Amino acid sequence: MSTFSGQIRDDEVCDKRVELSVHTQMSAMDAVLSVDELIHTADRWGWRAVAITDLVNIHTSSDAMRCVRSRCRGIKVIFEWRAT
């Protein structure tokens, strides 16, 4: 597996958004982002909340809550389970 060597992006918009549909690695064949990367990026970008909408499971819920409790206390995580 290769490592990322590109430029790290920032969200410099004054009015921050709440992303209401993000898939993580737990959505098979649909995303490559880990829940830790998602929560840390949202926190670094100043987002107040993010919705994890993985397909057919909610296995990231415990990892997401552990990450929020330990390092990113300002983030609210919304969980959605998509059955399709």
Rank of each mutant, 00 (worst) to 15 (best):
37 E>R: 01
58 I>V: 03
8 I>K: 15
63 D>C: 05
80 E>V: 10
27 S>P: 04
23 H>E: 11
2 S>D: 14
28 A>N: 12
67 C>A: 11
42 A>S: 09
24 T>S: 09
50 V>R: 11
25 Q>L: 15
38 L>Y: 00
56 V>W: 14
74 G>H: 14
24 T>P: 02
8 I>E: 08
14 C>N: 13
56 V>Q: 11
46 G>Y: 01
36 D>T: 09
76 K>W: 02
14 C>P: 10
18 V>E: 09
30 D>Y: 03
56 V>H: 06
15 D>F: 06
55 L>S: 13
48 R>K: 12
52 I>E: 05
35 V>N: 00
26 M>K: 12
42 A>I: 12
79 F>G: 00
60 T>I: 06
3 T>E: 13
50 V>G: 14
3 T>W: 08
28 A>C: 14
48 R>I: 01
10 D>G: 01
47 W>F: 13
35 V>Q: 00
5 S>R: 15
71 R>I: 06
55 L>C: 11
27 S>N: 08
76 K>A: 06
65 M>C: 08
69 R>Y: 04
63 D>F: 05
39 I>R: 05
47 W>T: 10
80 E>W: 10
22 V>C: 14
22 V>A: 13
6 G>T: 06
50 V>T: 06
14 C>A: 10
66 R>M: 06
1 M>E: 06
44 R>E: 11
71 R>W: 06
58 I>S: 06
58 I>R: 00
61 S>F: 10
37 E>T: 04
40 H>Q: 05
21 S>Q: 12
56 V>G: 15
68 V>M: 05
49 A>R: 08
47 W>L: 14
58 I>D: 01
38 L>H: 05
70 S>K: 05
62 S>Q: 07
55 L>W: 03
71 R>P: 07
23 H>T: 14
18 V>H: 10
3 T>D: 12
26 M>T: 11
57 N>C: 15
1 M>H: 09
64 A>E: 00
23 H>F: 03
75 I>G: 03
38 L>V: 00
57 N>M: 03
66 R>H: 07
20 L>K: 14
28 A>R: 12
11 D>H: 13
21 S>D: 08
1 M>T: 07
18 V>W: 07
82 R>T: 15
3 T>H: 15
79 F>I: 01
42 A>W: 00
69 R>Q: 15
77 V>E: 04
53 T>F: 00
21 S>W: 06
79 F>E: 02
17 R>Q: 07
22 V>L: 04
